[in-house]
């Protein structure tokens, strides 16, 4: 599953393991595992891996703060792309 790649990427990038004590809807910024540096890497990874593009508004809003939100956003973008 390509979506598992997002999880693996974040776990590797942020040196975390998603589990009961660190659920997938944790805010990665507030937990202190994500910073501007990691954020740029994450956005590049998603664009490359899924052939999608994020607008500035999407990147600077509160969209990509948790694994759950990232997955939903990517899925929505892929669905949007498939319809076109």
């Amino acid at each position: 599953m390509p979506m598992d790649k997002i999880r693996a990427f974040i776990e590797e990038q942020c040196l975390i393991e998603f589990d009961d004590s660190f659920p997938e809807d944790s805010n990665l910024f507030k937990e202190g595992v994500m910073d501007s540096y990691g954020y740029v890497h994450l956005c590049r990874f998603l664009e490359r891996e899924f052939g999608i593009h994020f607008t500035e508004a999407e990147m600077t809003g509160n969209v990509l703060v948790s694994l759950t939100q990232i997955r939903d956003t990517v899925a929505a973008k892929l669905a949007q792309g498939a319809q076109q």
Partner: peptide
């Protein structure tokens, strides 16, 4: 864009009395 996103996240005080250092303390949280 990443910096803009970062500032967006840190434009209001979350840690009482520590607003100025919240960005720095992100590294500390890690």
């Amino acid at each position: 864009v990443a910096l803009t996103g970062l500032y967006q996240q840190f434009s209001t005080e979350r840690m009482p009395g520590l607003f100025s250092h919240e960005l720095r303390f992100q590294n500390g949280r890690f």
